[in-house]
């Protein structure tokens, strides 16, 4: 077939470069990165005229044994889970409630509400981190001023005392994720057929009952999607913690991905890769558990 043959050539012309990029910068590094977790290496040239060969050294499971003893990994694991469990369901649920409200026919000012709610989603995390640090500033912060207005004059030091920084990082994550979830929910709500509501109305179902028994089950695939992708993103959190703790995390605030970064910067590429593999494994496990918990309900 002449056309098919011509297709073949020009199709490869279109696909070759993008595939090369994906191969060189993602696929190959993933395979090498997984393997690297079994080696000790600090990067650099594999061979130099002066120094000769400088190959990664095979250490077997040593990096993974080290994971078990590293208290920063233990704390990072706990903090990462606190962050995910604290932020993902809350942002999804709040976004659902807000989406239903904003989407209602009688809601006034849909565009302005959506614009405001969506704003944190598009803004750089660096800006968000600093703005919140400033809002939560001990002496001159807006938040403490608000508290003093309602008579609370001796608040904790939000960004340096115990677990408070982690609590605030989690709250800020909810704050910035709501808009994203909201927009997706509003798209999903368009797919709920009007006739179902009408039928329920005739049967005497009130608005609250309609939301609980119709809307919530109908957008369930979106809820599952948001919970799963939210958990995947949350397990990989880095920027927000890095910025909000002023690049000086403690055991109270460290998360797994910060440990990957720290080890990478120290030149322990093998150990960094091992932590990365741990995050990957946890991500797969959490996703599998969620898929199992929501089995048969992901698609309609």
């Amino acid at each position: 077939m002449a056309t098919a043959e011509r297709d073949n050539k020009s199709a490869w012309g279109f696909v070759a470069f993008p595939m090369a990029v994906l191969f060189v910068f993602i696929l190959l590094p993933t395979v090498l990165g997984l393997a690297l977790s079994l080696f000790q290496w600090s990067g650099g040239a594999l061979w130099t005229p002066e120094g000769g060969w400088a190959l990664p050294r095979w250490v077997g499971l040593t990096n993974f044994e080290r994971l078990l003893e590293d208290e920063r990994i233990g704390h990072g694991l706990v903090n990462t889970f606190v962050f995910v469990i604290g932020s993902v369901p809350a942002s999804v649920l709040l976004a659902f409630v807000l989406a239903v409200a904003v989407n209602a026919e009688w809601f006034r000012g849909r565009t302005i509400a959506r614009t405001l709610l969506f704003m944190p989603t598009i803004v750089s995390i660096v800006a968000i981190g600093f703005v919140w640090r400033w809002v939560l500033n001990d002496g001159a912060g807006l938040f403490n001023w608000g508290l003093s207005l309602v008579g609370i004059d001796d608040p904790p030091r939000w960004l340096s005392e115990g677990y408070w920084p982690l609590v605030w990082i989690t709250i800020v994550q909810v704050w910035r994720q709501i808009g994203f979830c909201l927009v997706l929910y509003m798209a999903a709500l368009q797919g709920v057929p009007t006739s179902v509501y009408e039928a329920a109305s005739i049967d005497g179902a009130g608005p609250w009952r309609q939301v609980r028994s119709i809307t919530w089950p109908m957008v369930r695939p979106m809820t599952v999607f948001l919970l799963v992708t939210g958990a995947i993103g949350g397990l990989q959190v880095f920027d927000l913690v890095f910025i909000m703790t002023g690049q000086s995390e403690t055991l109270y605030t460290t998360v797994l991905n910060l440990q990957v970064y720290d080890q990478f910067v120290l030149g322990s590429y093998g150990y960094a890769a091992a932590i990365g593999v741990l995050i990957f494994a946890i991500t797969i496990a959490v996703t599998a558990i969620q898929m199992w918990a929501f089995r048969g309900e992901g698609r309609r």
Partner: peptide
């Protein structure tokens, strides 16, 4: 694929 794993070799 997880960025934590592939960024090192990238």
């Amino acid at each position: 694929l997880p960025m934590q794993v592939f960024f090192i070799f990238a």
